[in-house]
Every structure is written in structure tokens, then in C-alpha cells.
């Protein structure tokens, strides 16, 4: 943990020097809510029945979905992107000559990204709370955070596999993009699974975003406790464990391969 925090500190200090970029990114999130608000308002009469079990308002339904999208995007793309960049600069190889283990290294390097996602998500939720007519159950934020953390863990497995590919063949083979797209299309981010074409609807259960969003909306928009959402939570925990185990084993194997093939640094 000591080493993980040291890497996180160094990386965060570096990222915080990009002041303008940080500010613009935050403003973009807030501005992007405006069209979502109006479009959601226009679609409310059409969507109301389909989303009734999770939210009374389509706008807040979309906001919670967007937060999950941020989390998934970071989880699948952070590791391959960092590996790619640090292979090019030689930093990865340098850090691996020290006593740090790879899980701590990746954890430290990813910490800033997830922290930034949390901040953007909070800004989005606060903006929605100001605008929305329905309420957001703020006391349930801890439960909501746990659900999002499980969602991130489930998708980090895919990020690790993509990172392993970058280590081995210097390409993630578009796995992060594919995972993000499937999550958005099948994971009830913008619409419930019930409106999916019948050929695709069964696949919604194969996407970790589906149980995560179902639970997240119940907690935050319906003020439900985690205890009432046990099936979704167990499913999410299953995804998270599988993701970490499969991703971890794959990444470890790729690191050993990279040490044999000499692909830890630019080639």
C-alpha cells in the first residue's frame, strides 16, 4: 500500500499541473448535461413506462447511466493507455526495476483516473439534483459508491487483458472500445433492456453494467438499501472476482512474456 500511494502521489502531482485541461474537462461535463436535460425531457412521455421500475424521471435515469459510463470507460481504457504511454517513455521498465509489484504499480497509476471519474460523477449528480424534479437519495451515496466500485472492478479485468495485449503485441485490439460500446448498448445505460430488439435482449444479462445500474438506480433514485438488491450485488461481485482473477492471471503471464520478448520498452 505504501508503494501504491507513492506512485499515486507522483502521478497525481503530475496530472494536477494540467490545470486548464482539468478545468475544461469539468466544464465540459457540466455543459454536456444541458442537452441531455432537454432531450430527456422531450422523451419523458415515451420512456416513462419502460423505466418505471428504476426511475420516475428519464433525465436522472440517464445521469446515473452516464456515471456508470464514466466508470466503465476508465476501467477498460486506463491500464492499456498507461502501459502504452509508459512503454514508449521507458518509465514502465524503470519502475519495474524497483521493488514495487505490478498490482501496486497499476493501482497507483490508475488512482488519479478513478478519482477524477468520481469528481466528474459527483459534479454530474449535483447538477442533475439541481435540475431534476425527482430526488436523489444522497444518504445512499456510500452504497452507490460501493456499486460503482464493484462495476469498476468487474471491468478492470478487461482493462488488464487489454493491458496484457499492449505488453505482448503493442495493441489492445480495440478491446476497451468494444467493451465500452457493448456496455453502453446492452447495459441499460441509455435505455432499459426491455426496449432492446428480442435478438439482443438476452445478452443484456451478460454485461456487468446491467445489474450494476439496476442496483445503482434503486439505491440512488428509489432510496433502496443494498440488502434489498442482493441478487444484483452477488452477480456484480461474481463479475468483479472473475474480472480480477482472469485479468490478473493474463496480465501476469503477459508481463513474463514481455520480460522474455523484450517488449517492456519501446521497440
Amino acid at each position: 500500500m505504501h508503494r501504491l500511494l507513492a506512485v499515486a502521489r507522483a502521478y497525481t502531482l503530475g496530472m494536477l499541473t494540467y490545470r486548464t485541461r482539468t478545468l475544461v474537462s469539468l466544464i465540459t461535463v457540466l455543459v454536456a448535461v444541458v442537452p441531455v436535460y432537454f432531450v430527456a425531457g422531450a422523451l419523458q412521455p415515451l420512456a416513462a413506462k419502460a423505466i418505471a421500475s428504476e426511475s420516475t424521471e428519464y433525465f436522472t435515469y440517464l445521469v446515473v447511466g452516464s456515471v456508470a459510463s464514466f466508470v466503465v470507460a476508465e476501467a477498460v481504457s486506463a491500464i492499456p493507455s498507461l502501459i502504452n504511454s509508459y512503454i514508449t517513455s521507458g518509465t514502465l521498465e524503470q519502475l519495474l526495476t524497483t521493488p514495487i509489484r505490478w498490482p501496486s504499480l497499476l493501482g497507483g497509476l490508475s488512482a488519479y483516473g478513478f478519482g477524477w471519474v468520481a469528481l466528474r460523477a459527483l459534479a454530474l449528480l449535483v447538477t442533475a439534483w439541481v435540475w431534476a424534479t425527482s430526488t436523489i437519495a444522497w444518504p445512499r451515496m456510500l452504497e452507490f459508491t460501493i456499486i460503482m466500485a464493484l462495476l469498476a472492478t468487474a471491468y478492470v479485468g478487461i482493462g488488464l487483458i487489454a493491458g496484457a495485449l499492449v505488453l505482448s503485441i503493442r495493441s489492445s485490439l480495440f478491446i476497451p472500445q468494444a467493451a465500452g460500446t457493448l456496455s453502453a448498448l446492452l447495459g441499460t445505460v441509455y435505455f432499459p433492456a426491455s426496449v432492446l430488439p428480442s435478438a439482443f435482449a438476452p445478452f443484456a444479462v451478460l454485461v456487468p453494467t446491467t445489474p450494476a445500474l439496476r442496483a445503482a438506480r434503486q439505491v440512488l433514485l428509489r432510496d433502496q438499501s443494498l440488502g434489498a438488491l442482493l441478487p444484483d450485488l452477488l452477480q456484480l461481485v461474481g463479475w468483479a472476482v472473475a474480472g480480477v482473477v482472469i485479468g490478473g492471471v493474463t496480465f501476469h503471464a503477459a508481463l513474463q512474456h514481455a520480460r522474455r520478448a523484450g517488449t517492456l520498452t519501446q521497440y
Binding site: 505504501h2 500511494l5 507513492a6 506512485v7 502521489r9 507522483a10 503530475g14 517513455s89 521498465e93
Partner: peptide
């Protein structure tokens, strides 16, 4: 380039000391 260019020399060295 293996250094962290956006942080100070002290922070670079401190990182490795912690590692």
C-alpha cells in the same frame, strides 16, 4: 524520458525512495 517530467526533481527522487 523515464523521469516524471511534470513533477519536481525532489518528487521524482522521493517516489523512488518510497518504492
Amino acid at each position: 524520458r523515464a523521469l516524471f517530467w511534470r513533477i519536481s526533481a525532489t518528487e521524482n527522487v522521493r517516489l523512488f525512495a518510497s518504492l
